[in-house]
Amino acid sequence: MVHETFTYGDSMVHRLDPRIKVIVAIVFSIVIAVADKFSVLLYGLCFSLSLIWIARLSIKKVSFRLMIVNGFILFIWIFLPFTYPGETLFCLGPFNASKEGVIYAALITLKSNAIILASIALLATSSITTLVHVLRHIYVPDKLVHLFFFCFRYIHVIHHEYIRLMNAMKIRCFQPKTNMHTYKTYAYLVGMLLIRSYDRSDRVYHAMLCRGFKGKFWMLDHFSMNRFDIISGTVLFLIIIGLIILQWGQIIT
């Protein structure tokens, strides 16, 4: 379940300095989320698609991921054209679909997919441990970084524990159905996980104290930018600046 599906690979995107990737992903997401011109969004989608292509990610896995995430977008397509005011494009029984509604739904679809593809290409291609380091470098509060790191570290441990308890339930012929027994059993399962993790967190904290923990997150490896990072970083930022000019250029001049 918690697999870092896209993390491992040997492409230009995988090799790029993670600090650049995170900052580009953040700036690009914000620009696309507030942009409202079709041309900007189309260029944005092309940008994300080319990043995916450069990262040489499996098209099958990426499109599978996209399909799951687009569930909410499907809802928008079902409702929005029929409720958005505007001139009628076509009729479906008593409902009129407006042209503006269809345009708006298309806009949202483009935005959503451009951002998701960019975050697959830029964020999911670094391991979480690397991203934790990046967070330290971009001045995210220390405690939050600790929290993030520990949470990720223990998800695997607790998932194992969950599978063990689940197997024990299956051996005793537990079959989930719509009844109180099922809900209660799941509640007790989570309760058991909570109790065990309370004990675990105590042990972990004491182990940390034994090893001299003083509330600081030491970084053992540092990032270094080489010429390749600087050049590709500049190119990525120039493209984003291009998108900004395309969107808001006229307002400024």
């Binding site: 929290l147 607790i158 969950y162 996980l193 909570l194 993790s197 309370y198 967190s201 940390m208």
Partner: peptide, 15 residues
């Protein structure tokens, strides 16, 4: 409190 809060968040993530 950090280890406790973090490990509880992982329980909620898994659950």
């Amino acid at each position: 409190r950090i280890p406790q809060v973090a490990i509880l968040s992982s329980v909620f993530f898994v659950a």
